[in-house]
Structure formats: structure tokens, C-alpha cells
Amino acid sequence: MKRAVDTRAVQGVLYGVYKALHNIAGASAPAVMRQAAPDILAELSKLGVSFDCVDDVDKLSSKIGETMEKTGMCDKMVMRLEGDRLKADITNCAFFDLTMHLKEDGIPPFGCPFAALTIAIAEKNLGKKARLVNLEPVPGGNPGDTRLEVQLF
């Protein structure tokens, strides 16, 4: 059953969880997300959101973009491969306010679901090792417009 949830409630919960994780794991907090991401994928699959069809970068781009848009995580997510860099432009990220509040507290966006899922799918379905190298607001963009860059090995 699909239900609409006020993102403020989700952001409030995530704020507390991410802040606690960062307090506990410090600079290694992203490693927690790396461990969590495959389980997020598995759980999404159980809930009917499967990425099993993804076997190349084009399918990764279209499937993850479609999923993020349909679930209201962002208005649009467009991905492209430049050399060994997978770059994504995310329009109106639903977690932008959360990211900014965490940033004000000195906490980096280690819990970004866009990055976590991109890395997990690239590793599981494309057989690549993947690492987040950059995540920042689009220069001159609207609030919520974010650029994500993952390096593939």
C-alpha cells in the first residue's frame, strides 16, 4: 500500500539517526552507509522496487532516475558517464533541508540515498567498485539542485 508521508517527518527522523551515526562513527560514518546500501536495495526489492534489470550504465541511469522521481525523492535525476566518473544532476532533492541542517552542524552528507544506491547498484549489478568523490549543490542552481559524482573502478 502506498501512503504519502510528510517529508518533514522523515527528515526529522533521519536528522537524529544521521547525527547519532556521525557522533558514533565520526569520519567513518560513510562506511556505515556503504554497509547499509545493499540492505536498502534488498528491502526495496521486497517492497516491489527492484533494480535487477540494471546491467549497464544506461539502464542504471534510467531506472534509478525513474525510481527517485516516482518516489518523490527528487523532481528529476539525470545521470551520465564521463570516463570513469558517473555524474548525476539531481533537481529539487527532497532531502535538501536535511542536508543543510546537518551541514550547519558540521556533518557531511554521508547518508545521501542517491549516492548510496548508485554505489550499491554499480557494485552489485555492474560488477564495478564505486566510490563517492563529490556531492555538492549545483553552482548557481536552485535550492535542492545537487550534483553527485561517483568514480567507478
Partner: peptide, 28 residues
Amino acid sequence: GRDGFVINSMGDMEADSVGAVISTAIGA
């Protein structure tokens, strides 16, 4: 790496899972 990404490993182990746990543990 601090993000749990295994840069290099030697020996028989599940490097990805060991690496993620070691990185997290040292952070804690």
C-alpha cells in the same frame, strides 16, 4: 578508506565487509 572503500588488501578475507567494519570501528 574512511568511507569503507577497500583501497588494497592482501590475504584471504572478505575484504569489502572486513574493510567496512574496520573503518566503522576505528571511527567509533
